[in-house]
Amino acid sequence: MRHLPDPAGIMIVTDAWHAQVNGVVRTLSMLADQLARLGQRVLVVGPDRFLTLPCPFYPEIRLAVAPGRRLGRIVDNFAPDALHIATEGPLGVAAARLARRRGWQFTTAYHTRFPDYLAARTALPRRLSYAWLRRFHLHGAGTMVATVSLADELRARGFSNTLLWSRGVDADLFNPGRAIDLPYERPIFLSVGRLAVEKNLPAFLDLDLPGTKLIVGDGPARPALERRHAGPRTVFLGTRHGPDLASLFASADVFVFPSRTDTFGLVVLEALASGTPVAAFPVAGPADIIGGATPPVGVLDEDLGSAALAALKLDRADCRRFAERHSWASCAALFMRHLVPIRGRGPAPD
């Protein structure tokens, strides 16, 4: 097998990029930064370089329109040694089509359970979505997935050559030293993430818990959730970033993660790095991250309220020590090992 040169030119094509706020964007941003620190030549190609239209279900997410020709020029100008296609949207499809036309190898990643998200909004059967995704990913040399359970799930659906690629956390930004006194009744139960139907927020908001629930994030479900739940003990704070977000993580008593569909959950590691224990359902993602932790740093239970109360008793120092074992540097190094050389280059199509 041919190896990449050192340094290598690594092109990452993604439909999820700034100014979107989600786990995929955070992952790719941290990855690109770490790759650059390793001395690699990195180019992230996102929708910001193209004419875009709003996504039908998420108008704040912009999708590239007919990106093929411009993408070909960008590829030729950069001359990558390796191509990684991070998403299955218009840009990802155009990049895969270009690579196949030129006889290039490339890797892909499976970040999001789109079949579940589509099923929650439309009548499209999951089997059709998975069939399309399977064809898309099988054209690549390998599909990177965040957890063992997700790899097992995809293999059961006919996906071959899955590659385990875990995630990291910025332990300098997210740390217990950023805790502040918040003006809310304790205990404080925090949730951070996109306010959308697939995040299963009512499972948290409907709980009868003492103290205060803090909701950080924005999204299409926010107006309806605020109308139903907002009050002195349930506070919607909107989107927060950087040190402001890190302070909320460190100042909460428990981080509650109600999603059943996330493929990983970066916010789980960010909470733990902040010294905040986690309560979640025993599903893929949180179970992969903390299910086997000794000593425990979270509680997984189908009774999310019981999990949240039990998590109050966990040692915050244990949470921090657990998170410190997950670095973005090791994440980037593993990503590099999974990349494949594109092997050949040809002229961009007219």
Rank of each mutant, 00 (worst) to 15 (best):
residue 62 R to L: 15
residue 25 V to F: 05
residue 278 V to Q: 04
residue 45 V to P: 01
residue 174 F to I: 07
residue 206 D to F: 02
residue 72 G to V: 13
residue 160 S to P: 03
residue 106 F to W: 05
residue 205 L to V: 06
residue 138 L to W: 11
residue 141 A to F: 05
residue 245 L to Y: 15
residue 158 G to A: 14
residue 318 D to V: 02
residue 33 D to R: 15
residue 37 R to A: 09
residue 83 L to E: 01
residue 108 T to I: 02
residue 304 L to D: 10
residue 227 R to P: 02
residue 54 P to N: 05
residue 136 F to S: 02
residue 323 A to T: 01
residue 223 P to H: 01
residue 343 R to I: 05
residue 349 P to A: 00
residue 10 I to H: 01
residue 343 R to D: 12
residue 54 P to F: 08
residue 305 G to E: 06
residue 10 I to L: 08
residue 110 Y to Q: 02
residue 79 A to P: 07
residue 77 N to T: 11
residue 234 T to K: 12
residue 123 A to T: 14
residue 180 I to C: 05
residue 306 S to E: 09
residue 284 A to M: 12
residue 234 T to L: 06
residue 251 S to M: 05
residue 305 G to L: 11
residue 137 H to V: 05
residue 332 A to M: 11
residue 293 A to I: 08
residue 123 A to Q: 09
residue 331 C to E: 08
residue 226 E to W: 02
residue 163 L to M: 01
residue 175 N to C: 15
residue 204 F to W: 06
residue 170 D to S: 06
residue 40 Q to G: 04
residue 91 L to I: 10
residue 190 L to G: 00
residue 152 D to R: 14
residue 184 Y to G: 02
residue 239 T to I: 14
residue 253 D to A: 13
residue 298 G to P: 03
residue 179 A to V: 14
residue 348 A to V: 06
residue 27 T to R: 14
residue 37 R to D: 14
residue 7 P to S: 06
residue 19 A to W: 08
residue 275 G to P: 13
residue 49 R to A: 14
residue 342 I to R: 13
residue 183 P to W: 00
residue 203 A to H: 08
residue 341 P to Q: 09
residue 35 L to N: 05
residue 23 G to Q: 12
residue 179 A to R: 15
residue 145 V to P: 00
residue 41 R to M: 09
residue 86 A to V: 06
residue 56 P to Q: 04
residue 291 G to Y: 15
residue 193 G to I: 01
residue 47 P to N: 12
residue 2 R to Y: 03
residue 22 N to R: 09
residue 227 R to V: 07
residue 145 V to R: 04
residue 293 A to W: 15
residue 300 L to A: 03
residue 217 G to N: 00
residue 254 V to K: 11
residue 149 S to H: 04
residue 211 G to R: 04
residue 183 P to D: 00
residue 22 N to D: 15
residue 164 L to T: 09
residue 255 F to T: 09
residue 22 N to C: 15
residue 323 A to Y: 00
residue 272 L to K: 01
residue 267 V to Y: 06
residue 176 P to K: 01
residue 136 F to I: 07
residue 69 R to C: 08
residue 279 A to F: 10
residue 299 V to K: 00
residue 295 P to E: 05
residue 170 D to I: 04
residue 206 D to S: 00
residue 184 Y to I: 11
residue 330 S to D: 10
residue 237 L to P: 08
residue 175 N to L: 09
residue 40 Q to I: 06
residue 129 S to L: 12
residue 25 V to W: 05
residue 171 A to E: 04
residue 94 A to C: 07
residue 113 R to I: 04
residue 133 L to W: 10
residue 31 L to H: 10
residue 35 L to W: 09
residue 223 P to I: 13
residue 158 G to F: 11
residue 213 K to H: 06
residue 96 A to W: 01
residue 132 W to E: 08
residue 129 S to T: 14
residue 27 T to S: 15
